[in-house]
Amino acid sequence: MTYTAWIIITACLVGLTCGLIGVFLILRRMAMMADAISHTVLLGIVVAFIITRELSGPHMLVGAILVGLLTAVLVQWLNSLEIENHASIGIVFTTLFAIGVILIATSVGNAHLDVQHALMGEITFIPWNTVNLPMIGSIPEATAILFLVLIIVVFMILAFYKEWKITSFDPALAASIGIPVVLMHYVFMSLVSVTTVAAFDAVGAIMVVAMLITPAASAYLWTDKLSIMLLLSGTFGVVSAITGYYIAAWIDTSISGSMAFATGIVFLISFIGSPKHGLFAKFIPNVTDNKALNEKSTR
């Protein structure tokens, strides 16, 4: 397969995986946590590298899960000490990220790992670093990892669909009928962590936030059904990834930057055009909406 094809496939996998996970980030009102984890996984990757001296996928995934959980636990802990939630997130992620940056500068030195790469990613190099898989043959390592993570994410969402739904909508009821809300929270944080680290190589810590949040936020504007929101968000992620690639090729610029930019365009279109929540929605005659409005005014 050509390099271009691998790049596009990798980008699509990033868009799809992030789009799916992003839906629950939005619905659980945890967009800031995505930002936090996307930065702190750097520490996980660096520590995994210092211990194993190699930048291989499985080690990075384990490191990312541990640091992702550490982030979630620390935020929870600071929060319980009467520090406002967003402040807690800000304190924890900048500190852990800074430790990662310091470790890169002092202990990692000239390895294939630098801050620039960590922040921006470099999807162009992905086809060069391949692994041999049985039956499939030689494919880029980042693509293989992303595929694995996509399968994990899809499996977890489908297997625990109703549990994700109820713990996102009404955690108090969920807890009262015996669903382990806290455990689900940490499992979710782990999923965010592995998604982030898998997408890391391709798009970097900053762009992965765009891929996690924006497609899901756009999908939220189009539908009133969770399953459709998931499908739309995944689709928006893939569309943004492909569009982003061609924008980058057209004006010869950063691929990850263009992909993030494309998610912004998708959101803008959704924001203006959505028939339900869009900017012009109130000018479109809609029977159910009018009925709802009438009820609201009479209550």
């Binding site: 619905l27 009102r29 109703k162 549990e163 739904k165 109820i166 996102s168 909508f169 009404d170 108090a172 009821l173 969920a174 009262s176 009928i177 015996g178 669903i179 939220y220 539908t223 009133d224 059904k225 969770l226 459709i228 929101m229």
Partner: peptide, 29 residues
Amino acid sequence: YIGYVPQRGSVDWDFPTNALDVVTMGLYG
């Protein structure tokens, strides 16, 4: 054996779901 009705304001009513679905949640356990 226990049923709980939280305060109405405790949940996000913009959540993408319909009335029947919310009621079905009572059976998830």
